[in-house]
Simulated assay, not measured.
Amino acid sequence: MTRPEIAFTVNNLRQFLQAPMTAHWAACKRVLRYLQGIPFHGLWFKPASSLHLERFSDTDWASCVDDRHSTTGYCVYPCGYLINWCSKKLQVIARSSTEA
């Protein structure tokens, strides 16, 4: 959870684990080289005087051009620091944004 800058790339790469191609392996190696080059980067948390919790969620509507499935996600910010997030492709094809 201390490396949100690569979360999107890793999420996209994991979608191709069943049948990876050469381009996916090259992208994976690039992420690993990036992480190897900056081992001491991360998030630093400072103490807060009060606990202020914010949570955001959103769902898109069939935005994946490969299979037209929707993606949903959320993130949690206590005291302004991102500590938890989730992004998930829905298994069904929604016919409306309300259904998604």
Rank of each mutant, 00 (worst) to 15 (best):
Q36A: 09
S57R: 01
V31G: 00
A19P: 00
T71K: 05
C28G: 09
V76I: 15
K29C: 02
R55I: 13
V76E: 10
V65S: 14
D60C: 03
L53C: 08
S49D: 10
S63W: 06
F16H: 08
R68E: 06
F40Y: 14
S97H: 09
T59Y: 07
L53V: 14
R68V: 03
G37I: 02
K88Y: 12
T22Y: 06
R95I: 07
C75F: 11
K88N: 12
H52L: 13
A19N: 14
H41Y: 13
T22H: 09
P20A: 00
W44P: 04
G73L: 09
R68I: 01
L17I: 01
I93R: 14
S50P: 00
V31Q: 00
L17G: 00
T72L: 04
S87Q: 10
P20F: 05
G37P: 01
I83Q: 12
A19I: 06
I83A: 09
S96K: 11
F40A: 12
W61Y: 05
Q91C: 11
S96R: 11
L17N: 01
Y77A: 09
G42P: 02
L32H: 02
C86I: 03
C75W: 06
S87P: 07
E54P: 01
A62R: 09
L17T: 04
S63A: 12
Q15W: 02
A19C: 10
H69P: 02
S63T: 10
L35P: 03
C64G: 00
A23T: 08
R33A: 05
S70Q: 07
A26K: 08
Y81H: 15
P47F: 04
K89T: 12
A62E: 03
G42R: 04
S57A: 06
K29I: 01
S96L: 11
L35E: 03
S57D: 04
Y34Q: 02
M21P: 00
V65K: 15
S97I: 07
G37H: 10
S97D: 06
V31P: 00
C64F: 06
L82E: 15
S97R: 09
H41K: 12
A48T: 06
L35V: 07
D67Y: 11
V65A: 15
L43P: 03
R55C: 14
A48K: 12
S70P: 05
I38V: 14
K89M: 12
A27T: 08
Q91R: 13
Y81V: 15
T72N: 06
D58E: 04
E54N: 07
S87M: 10
F16K: 05
A23W: 02
D60M: 01
S63G: 13
A19Q: 13
Y77H: 15
H41C: 11
S97Y: 09
L17D: 01
P39R: 08
R33G: 00
W85Q: 14
D60L: 01
L43F: 10
Y74H: 08
